[in-house]
Amino acid sequence: MSSKLILTFFLGAAALTLSACSTDNTPTDTQVIDGGSVYDGRITEVLDADGALAVGNPNLPDGWTGPAALADKHTIYFGYDSDQIQDQYISVMQENAKYLRANPDARLVVEGHTDERGTPEYNIALGERRARSVARYMQNLGVDVAQISIVSYGEEKPVEPGHDEAAWSKNRRAVLNY
């Protein structure tokens, strides 16, 4: 991408805390993104060749970035319009709780997701409800509240792109990310 002009803005303390989402193998303090600008806790915004402001860090991995031992134990699926945790996923949460108790420096981000039915703004509220429900359960399993944060993506980040129940059932989920 050819960057013509580089603009940097201070985005305040709230933005700084977000680097907590990344894992140890991901550089966060200083790293080069486009055009030699330095990511130093400020958000670097690049004006792209087509005139758009380009934001976000393309070098950060998207998707799940937790410890290998939990690679197949990080997703809890939900029924339609429900934030009820089904029994079959309790072991997933127990495994994660065990890991978090043993690693007090580890930070969990509970991501809440919904299927595409309903409106995006309503779904983001439903996704938050799912994330909260999981976060509460993790606390009950003895995880320190300071280790847990939540974020709802609503229907914005489906894992399955289809538009039928097969896809929807995989998209109604909470992901235990690190």
């Binding site: 087509d50 758009a52 402001l53 380009a54 934001v55 976000g56 993506y153 914005e156």
Partner: peptide
């Protein structure tokens, strides 16, 4: 069509 913002993560509303 003119682009305003491009992001690695979702944009809404």
């Amino acid at each position: 069509e003119r682009p305003v913002l491009k992001s690695t993560q979702p944009i809404m509303t």
